[in-house]
């Protein structure tokens, strides 16, 4: 594996390889707090065309925990704002000798283009491309689900996971739906029809417009952020109505099975898709997801550039 661009390129064995590596890394670094010498002398470039403090910091920390040199390149205030194309930026980074480029871009397919256009020798890791994919977030979520619901298991058979809300604008939802499908979980996507993408009936999931009916059968519920910044039309009448119909509040959380966990990829709109009370409850694993995102990013970096792919 040279690049990590989409979960749809992963097999079940490949997914488990990343999750198992992350599990060991979590163990040897005490949840990512210790520094390992593994990537000493290698350069990881974070190429961020979109603002994302959380993801950028997580990737920076993951690379630094493995002793890589980290260069962060934000589109704002760089040559990109002077009109440099993706290609020229890539050629520049390649000339500087980047071993890995972690790219976040508003256009779907940007990471794929970067990896396969022949501009680079580096590995490319997709850190979110438009509404398309965000594979390390889904891998982190799979790690969290596995730790809580199926420790050490080789698949997620028998698990039912609800993904609720703005699936249309969410690359996290898309990556999660496909990755959970690869692992054999049953996925139920719940949201207003206006926030579900066209063609979702062909995805490995069931679709529902009503949340309440499914609550008792969910082993985990993932609440998605209402992405106001990507909405240039009216998708629902009001925030209040959205949160009444699809928001996770105390009453709904009580309908979940006792073992069920509450997840959110962050950042949260408290009071819209999830109430503060539920977000801070014992069922919530939201801060754990942040730590697990870090260890799967370390695992992905180690597997992509820790060895030498040209020596087979």
């Amino acid at each position: 594996m040279k690049h990590l661009l989409s979960v749809q390129e992963l097999s079940r064995a490949g997914t488990l390889r990343i999750l198992d590596t992350a599990l060991e890394l979590n163990q040897v670094t005490d949840g990512g707090t210790k520094i390992l010498p593994t990537l000493r002398g290698r350069t990881v470039v974070n190429l961020f065309y979109e603002d994302s403090t959380r993801t950028r910091i997580s990737f920076e920390r993951a690379a630094k925990r493995l002793s890589a040199d980290v260069v962060t390149f934000s589109a704002k205030g760089s040559s990109v704002s002077k009109g440099e194309s993706l290609k020229d930026t890539a050629l520049t980074l390649n000339a500087m000798g980047a071993d890995m480029i972690v790219v976040r871009h508003p256009s779907p397919g940007a990471a794929h283009r970067l990896a396969h256009a022949g501009w680079l020798e580096s590995s490319v890791l997709n850190a979110g491309d438009g509404k398309h994919e965000h594979p390390t977030q889904a891998l982190g979520d799979a790690f969290t689900l596995r730790a809580h619901l199926r420790p050490g298991a080789k698949d997620f058979a028998g698990l039912t996971i609800g993904i609720v809300g703005d699936v249309l604008h969410s690359r996290v939802a898309r990556s999660n739906i496909f990755l959970l499908g690869i692992l054999g979980a049953k996925v139920i996507v719940i949201g207003p029809p206006t926030l579900l993408p066209v063609g979702i009936e062909n995805w490995p999931c069931e679709v529902s417009y009503s949340l309440d009916a499914y609550l008792p059968e969910l082993d985990a519920i993932m609440m998605l952020r209402v992405q106001q910044e990507r909405m240039n039309g009216t998708f629902f009448p009001s925030e209040l109505e959205y949160s009444r119909t699809f928001g996770l509040n105390r009453k709904r959380a009580r309908e979940l099975p006792e073992h069920a966990i509450v997840m959110h990829p962050g950042p949260m709109n408290r009071g819209v898709e999830i109430t503060a009370e539920v977000a801070d409850s014992a069922q919530s694993v939201i801060t754990e997801q942040v730590v697990n995102g870090l260890v799967v990013r370390m695992a992905s970096m180690y597997l992509l550039i820790g060895g030498n792919v040209s020596v087979a």
């Binding site: 040897v28 390992l36 010498p37 597997l303 020596v311």
Partner: peptide
Amino acid sequence: LFRDDLQMRPSKALEQT
């Protein structure tokens, strides 16, 4: 993760510590 010859072979899965 501590080897000095990591770059001489493909990355391998980790064993238990």
